[in-house]
Amino acid sequence: MVTKEKVAGIIDASIAAVLAPTQAENKSFLESIKPFPFAAVAVEPFYVRETAKILSETKIAVACVISYPLSVLTSDTKLSQAAFALHDGANELDIAMSFADFKAGRFDKVKEDLKPIVYLTGDRIKKMIYYSALLSTDEQKKAVELAIELGFDFVKTNPGYGYVTKPEHIMTVKTTFKDAIKVMASGGVRTSTDAMAMIEAGTDRIATSAALNILSGFEE
């Protein structure tokens, strides 16, 4: 049986449903999720320091999104964003791959862009956002291949903001790459039914701005 605790343990909760939260709104969100054993809280760079402080006595990790949501930072600014996030207390980084380079087939550039951040992150968890909603199945496989080659721990399907993940995206990763990399379903997972569909498809984690709503659909 999938319990509430088990589901919480694979969720990265975020406050993304509130656009540009104030620090007070972020704090109140963090207080609301603190009692649950979530895997991580995903925040944007401005909130990392405060979030790390507030969660310091919990086991919930702080994940910071990099070049989010549209993958539009240049390599140098992306690297500095990652450096600031780690300095401020992020334990995990969710980094968008360079989508434009990927679509143009410039895979070496995709790797060059991400490599320094992978080195910088060291043994902390890193996830590559690859925009599965915008890619064909073959392109999804290629993106995951690059993530494995670069040493990412996870691939994160989408950034949210209307880019929706389907269970098939998760199955593509799990059936093709087995345990070579973990996968996080992100984008459009808002209910316990959505979450179950992703779990059945094999997801290792779920990113959602509806974490408490999802938990309410599972039993203790």
Binding site: A20, E44, Y47, V72, T74, D76, T77
Partner: peptide
Amino acid sequence: SFPLGVDLPEQKFLACLS
């Protein structure tokens, strides 16, 4: 700092410089 500007001031400055 698209779309909501929730980056650090230092980060925005570097992005601008670049």
